[in-house]
Design a protein around this nucleic acid. Structure first.
Lengths: 216, 216
DNA sequence: TATTCAATCAGTCATATGTCGTATTTTGCA
DNA sequence: TGCAAAATACGACATATGACTGATTGAATA
């Protein structure tokens, strides 16, 4: 028998999820439905014999990311599957950092969710298709988050920053172009603009200045 | 109709894989079976109308990682699924770095492989359970391979270090030469030696690695 | 609606760079 | 003292890069 907890502030959604799981299986039981992270943690203090938590991200009081962090550190035996509508890089990365071992989008079918539950208990990592793809992208490019800079008057566009970050890895134009799915000509043009803005004349100087200005 | 190419040095395995795909579907056609990376690339030069490559890692002549890199950079429209027995972190990471968007273990069923093919074409990233889990682990721990302390053997001379330090400032050969009262030719030769020692191929990579190794 | 701006791409040209050889001189140290 | 390593230097070749000119597109915005 597999014990599940659900953390989801929309009670209707939570209920319908519970019913779907109930209807489709005989060995999965929903022990608790929490409407935020606090509630979930309070419940787990009394009864931590839960195998998997299905966790929404957007919740009042304590969001799913923080809750995931807490659950994973306090109860390492509990696996967390994020179940949400968000699929932006930052949320995915935060959730994984927090310790989530699964990340499914809410439009997944009940069967997929059930497969995910079984998969996670077998040591797998259930992910929706687009999430898996983004995960790999994040792995290739380990710094998609800090787009803010404390410049001194110079402002680079996001694209220009992306290019600088790849440049810093020692990539040539072709490689950067492939990475960003644009042509080498465009990379060169971006670099040209970057050089003007930073008042430099080659790659190394551009990277130096960018680091100095904390742009990358 | 989905066109597949298979790169797999074990001809028996390749053939049986082809037959399995053929038996289980009507819309997937295996256009080519290559027994190594070279063969695959040669084929793709003549006909690159392939949607997905199923790629073994361990192959003679050109292994699957290099081949993946080549395929992904030359033919961005082609999706690569690694299909191998290896599941160690380094191989997975290399494959993803190389551009693979799927990573299945060879013990997957034909149905799973077919699902993977469809998934990758929808923008997903098919991964075997353990692979997905390791991927997330890698993402949490952005430096899982630093135990290769092979930098022990690398020693740069004082002169080489001087040159690297000037290089890091963004100076060109002429400027470095002036600074050190030697000819640009000599600077180039030093750089050449540095590249060999650090196993890199341009200034930026050399500086990166030197900083990483705390040489400068 | 007009205008700006980010992002895209192409082509030219001079220069810089990376990779080969090859070769001489200095120098540290066994 | 003699040898290996380090430092010095040049030529040649293909490729990468930096600088410039010019252009199109779409999104934001005034």
């Amino acid at each position: 028998m597999i014990s599940i907890a659900i953390a989801e502030d929309n009670k209707l959604l939570a209920r319908s999820l519970q019913e779907k799981l109930l209807a489709a299986t005989t060995d999965i039981v929903v022990k608790f439905i929490a409407s935020n992270g606090n509630e979930l943690l309070k419940y787990l203090e009394k009864d931590s014999t839960v195998d998997v938590v299905l966790m929404d991200i957007e919740m009042p009081q304590m969001d799913g990311i923080i809750a995931t962090e807490q659950v994973c550190s306090r109860y390492p035996h509990i696996k967390v599957i994020i179940l949400t509508v968000f699929d932006d890089d930052e949320k995915i990365f935060s959730a994984i950092q927090a310790g989530a071992m699964g990340y499914l989008l809410k439009d997944e079918s009940a069967e997929e969710i059930i497969k995910g539950i079984r998969m996670i208990l077998e040591g797998g990592a259930p992910m929706s298709a687009t999430i898996a793809a983004k995960t790999l992208q994040l792995l290739r490019n380990p710094q998609p988050l800090p787009r803010q800079m404390c410049d001194e008057g110079v402002t680079l566009s996001n694209r220009e920053i992306e290019i600088l970050e790849l440049l810093e890895k020692g990539y040539d134009y072709k490689k950067i172009a492939d990475q960003l799915f644009i042509s080498p000509s465009t990379v060169r043009k971006h670099l040209e603009n970057i050089y003007h803005k930073l008042q430099v004349h080659n790659k190394m100087q551009a990277v130096r200045k960018a680091i100095q200005y904390k742009i990358i």
